[in-house]
Nucleic acid binder design. Structure first.
Lengths: 172, 172
DNA sequence: GGGAGATACTTAACATGTTAAGTGAATGCG
DNA sequence: CGCATTCACTTAACATGTTAAGTATCTCCC
């Protein structure tokens, strides 16, 4: 019961299987990674033509939809960690795609918003981006896509507050 | 038909919605990213305790299951780009977790394999890792998990050979 | 058998992911 | 008021993602 037969896809691995584990290529993290990569591969070339990375695009989109936001709020919306966001905002600001001004009430906070140039850039990128998304939807099926996203959301939910684990226990 | 009502979740954004797009937070790439992050968040602490990153762990697992492999093959299996793999192999070799020897027949290729130390490390990490995976499976449901992975695979399939696009057309 | 082209990596350069530490500004409380 | 904490970022340091170049081999065909 401690061993498992070798995966049929590599029929002749001689040894080194002391540690039985799930078939590597079928782990959930790998499945998610591969799927996401398959999707992003479609978008990157178009973004690249406009000098944008995936993350920069996420930020612009987030800003376009929420008008102005504090950095922390933006990080949550664009799903980026603070340090990444900090760097990217610095660069986007240098390119005049966003604007930043410190809040009056609380000098620690700064409000970020998209600039006119930023809006213009979005207008240039959005059509292609939407077309690609439509193509993906069409290929995979709109219904299935909705189902998939539903399941992904449930997965996220079911793991919420598991990794945070030590919420009120040890603290070291 | 060119406009869409604002998302109900941010009822009062004043302007800057010149570019209508899907609700940002519900795009497929974001769903996949969030789901993957929710999963990986569970594993990272344990890996970290053993001084391993997610990618390093992927490589060790891949090597443990296929015995020895060329770098290119390993890149495909562990789903890493060549440059990343090159760096990681350099580091893993320095830590004596893997071994490398150039192939006799073709001096360009090198065969990579896991070392005894590498196997030992895997043995130390695997139990926790499997336990976490079991917990995730249990929370989300084994059946649903299988379904999800099935859909992810189909998504990948349906996009195969779309981004490669220019396979035999333009060439710069 | 020799040189053009293909292969299998490796390096380089820049951007982000991830964790820890730093900085300046608010807050709470004695 | 005064000062320790907390907060909202920003920097720093190290690892990987991503694309483009570089290097050493190998292949093939004239």
């Amino acid at each position: 019961m401690t061993k498992r037969p070798a995966d049929p896809t590599n029929g002749s691995a001689p040894a080194a299987r002391q540690v039985p584990m799930r078939d590597f290529s079928r782990s959930l993290p790998m499945s998610l990674l591969r799927a996401r990569e398959a999707v992003m591969r479609q978008f990157r070339p178009s973004l690249r033509e406009h000098g944008l990375t995936e993350q920069q695009w996420r930020i612009l989109r987030a800003l376009a939809s929420i008008e102005a936001a504090e950095v922390t709020e933006l990080a949550r919306t664009a799903f980026l960690l603070g340090p990444s966001l900090s760097r990217i905002l610095r660069d986007l600001e240098a390119r005049n795609l966003i604007e930043r001004k410190t809040a009056k009430a609380d000098q620690r906070r700064s409000m970020v918003s998209i600039s006119k140039e930023g809006v213009k850039l979005m207008a240039a990128v959005a059509p292609t981006s939407e077309a690609i998304y439509a193509e993906i939807t069409s290929r995979f099926g709109a219904r299935k896509l909705a189902e998939l996203q539903e399941m992904l959301g449930e997965l996220e939910q079911s793991l919420a507050g598991l990794g945070a684990g030590n919420e009120a226990s040890a603290e070291e």
